[in-house]
Design a protein around this nucleic acid. Structure first.
Length: 427
DNA sequence: CACCCTTTGAAGGCC
DNA sequence: GGCCTTCAAAGGGTG
């Protein structure tokens, strides 16, 4: 994919990495939010700037910054210091272990994180090998250390690695043994052993967030009968596979929390969102690739599952309710509607180029920045910023979403705009 | 206690 | 195909 091309170099330089995010809104909202302390805001800015600066420099700088970030965890990883730290562009370094084992999103870990106390922090802190989990595809480790040695061994079933679909979904301990390759698991699932009968990592009890943790604990603390009684009425929920950004958040959240001592997820997510945009395509591509693989595996494990299955499992958000109840036609969602066809000069770049604004369409706001006076920032007619499709044309197919989606998942953003916003980067 | 907030991406339904 | 909605994680905040 062109986005991945490391070859022309410039392409990766993200000059045309038109990344949308609502900068102005960010600033305002952050100020308006519960985090009103100026130092906090500064901290946030610096956090973002850190990435932005890196972005504006080059990937080497980025990696250096990441290494610096990583230092935060040095004390936690000292015992792993003999392990090469920089195997994959520095991206999965710090905490992105566990994938496919520990990094598995907790919903996929029916028994919860290996360490009961670590379910908020990812992986490395769990003492995992820093590389194994980070290299789920090419460096898949069939014998993750956290797999208990006493797990039952199923005779005749041998785990053999699959390079095509590595073990993204860790097999539940005590349920699916590590000696079973995931294909076996998949086959089991497809051949009658329905997911609902096997507490697969992606399967969680139907209700609250933490429920799966409780659920997991209950498995060991409650009697079998009790468990049965409790479990039976509820149908386990197969969660959606995490997308690239979710994977990124999962990995980086702990780091951001540690750096800025923030705990409020909304604020953390804002930072993470901006950092996400500050990533180079290469860096993002790795997460896209992980996400793609995860979807692939999820699809194989639960061929009949549909994202729609989980609809209604969450309460509708207020915003949605508001939209639903009173769809306010006076609150335009699109630049087209907002400014009208006669004032296309006021449209944001993407809208002007494409005559529409996806962010307005999807989020009710335009991610692509307008200038402070309301005029649109003149974005270069860069190619649409597809997600850095990690699938190399020779190795993997396009992500389905990329194939299906008529529009790019992300809007383009004039990167100079980000620079302008950056306090530290006059460039 | 339940929901909100906040982010991006994926998926699916509707037209 | 375009548009729209919902969910995925997370955990403090809020009513």
């Amino acid at each position: 994919m062109p986005q991945l091309n490391g070859g022309g170099g410039d392409d990766l330089g993200a000059n045309d990495e038109m990344i949308p995010f609502k900068d102005e809104e960010d600033h305002e909202k952050i100020r308006e939010s519960a985090f009103t302390e100026s130092d906090l805001a500064d901290l946030k800015s610096s956090l973002v700037n850190e990435s932005e600066i890196s972005q504006n420099s080059n990937s080497a700088v980025i990696r250096r910054g990441q290494q610096e970030d990583q230092r935060i965890y040095t004390d936690k990883r000292e015992h792993l210091d003999d392990v090469p730290k920089h195997q994959d562009g520095g991206m999965y370094k710090a905490s992105y272990s566990g994938y496919p084992f520990l990094m598995l999103p907790e919903p996929y870990l029916p028994n919860g994180p290996v360490s009961p106390s670590s379910n908020k922090v990812s992986v490395v802190q769990q003492g995992m090998h820093p590389l194994t989990p980070l290299l789920p595809y090419d460096h898949f480790n069939p014998s993750p250390p956290h797999i208990p040695t006493d797990v039952s061994q199923k005779p005749g079933v041998h785990r053999h690695q699959s390079q095509e679909i590595s073990g993204f979904y860790s097999l539940p301990q005590g349920q699916i043994t590590p000696s079973m390759n995931w294909f076996s698991h998949s086959l089991m699932l497809q051949s009658g052993m329905h997911p609902t009968g096997i507490p697969h990592p992606a399967i969680v009890p139907p209700s609250g967030k933490q429920e799966h943790d409780q659920f997991d604990r209950n498995i060991y603390t409650k009697s079998h009968a009790e468990m049965k009684r409790e479990k039976e009425p509820k149908k386990p929920v197969i969660k959606k596979p995490l997308n690239a950004f979710m994977l990124y958040m999962k990995e980086m959240r702990a780091k951001v929390i540690a750096e800025c001592t923030l705990k409020e997820s909304a604020a953390i997510n804002q930072i993470l969102g901006r950092r996400w945009h500050a990533l180079t395509r290469e860096e993002q591509a790795k997460y896209y690739e992980l996400a793609r693989k995860e979807r692939q595996l999820h699809m194989q494990l639960y061929p009949s599952w549909s994202a729609r299955d989980n609809y209604g499992k969450k309460k509708r958000r207020k915003r949605d309710k508001q939209q639903d109840s009173g769809t306010d036609p006076s609150s335009p969602k699109k630049c087209r509607a907002r400014f009208g066809l006669n004032q296309q000069t006021d449209w944001c770049g993407p809208c002007r180029r494409k005559k529409k604004c996806i962010r307005y369409l999807q989020r009710g706001r335009c991610a692509s920045p307008h200038s402070s006076d309301g005029s649109a920032i003149d974005s270069p007619p860069s190619p649409v910023n597809h997600p850095p499709n990690p699938a190399s044309p020779t190795s993997s197919p396009l992500p389905q979403s990329a194939k299906r989606s008529a529009h790019p998942p992300r809007l383009s953003l004039d990167f100079s705009r980000i620079k302008t916003e950056s306090h530290n980067n006059p460039d």
